[in-house]
């Protein structure tokens, strides 16, 4: 626990001392303003917007997830670029344990922000625990995102390209809401599809446990896979 706190303090020092990463930390404020202030105004002015509110909320939660995914991906790429990752490679730590432990704080913060966003949005009364469940699912997107981007690139420039690709992959299942139901299976191979569908069901007061369960298992498996590849490639 002490180690986790110490490591998180260092990570946050690095984030706050980097102007571009620091800016990203303020993204949730912008998202809160859009959802709590701007969206109700738009909805009142344009009635047609009302039926798209669930989709806006879904995209808003995924934006929160992308924030920490992006920040940690950039940090890991910088570590690799500067050779700091090699230093971790010769420390008396379990590389797998360390790689996963490092994701705990960003996951927790993402869960907290997502949960706060869903609980404070003015459109639906969402149940406390179920909302927390979906917030956890959103938080679980951070590790495979950050580790995945870091695995695939050698430097920051490549990293920014992969971030764009990952952002697209993460958001793309939202298309499933706008196509005939018989084609939605195409998106089931993407973990965020389950999060989106489940959250939509939660918002509409429908059954959502299946999507929550599949999404959770999917993301845990993806985290395990990316962590394994990350350990093989990051520290050597």
């Amino acid at each position: 626990m002490k180690q986790l706190i110490r490591l998180s303090v260092s990570d946050f020092k690095l984030i706050f001392r980097d102007a571009s990463l620091r800016t990203f930390l303020f993204l949730p404020i912008l998202i809160f303003v859009v959802v709590i202030v701007v969206l109700p105004l738009v909805k009142n002015k344009f009635e047609v917007v009302a039926e798209y509110i669930p989709f806006v909320l879904i995209v808003a939660t995924i934006e929160v997830t992308q924030m920490f995914g992006f920040i940690y991906a950039v940090m890991l790429i910088e570590e690799k670029e500067m050779g700091v990752s090699h230093v971790y490679g010769v420390l008396p730590i379990s590389k797998m344990g360390f790689s996963l432990m490092r994701q705990v704080i960003p996951v927790l913060i993402t869960i907290l922000i997502t949960w706060a966003l869903l609980m404070t949005q003015p459109f639906y009364n969402l149940p406390f625990l179920s909302t927390l469940g979906f917030s956890m699912l959103s938080g679980l997107i951070v590790p495979p995102y950050a580790l995945g981007v870091s695995i695939l690139c050698k430097n920051k420039m490549e990293g920014l390209i992969w971030v764009k690709v990952f952002n697209l992959i993460v958001v793309i299942p939202v298309i499933a809401f706008f196509i005939p139901p018989s084609y939605t299976f195409l998106f089931t191979i993407l973990p965020t599809h389950w999060a989106f569908q489940g959250l939509n069901h939660l918002i509409l007061g429908e059954a959502f446990l299946l999507e929550l369960g599949i999404g959770t298992v999917f993301l845990i498996a993806l985290t395990a896979l990316t962590a394994r590849l990350f350990v093989q490639r990051h520290y050597a």
């Binding site: 020092k13 690095l14 050779g83 700091v84 010769v90």
Partner: peptide, 30 residues
């Protein structure tokens, strides 16, 4: 890894941390 020390060929530190903070961070694992 507690028994070995490695001096790498190229400098590899967190540039945004101070020298002392770098040592404190990596030293905290021993």
């Amino acid at each position: 890894f507690e028994r070995i020390g490695v001096g790498f060929e190229l400098p590899n530190h967190y540039l945004k941390l101070t020298g002392k903070e770098n040592l404190a961070l990596f030293g905290s694992f021993y």
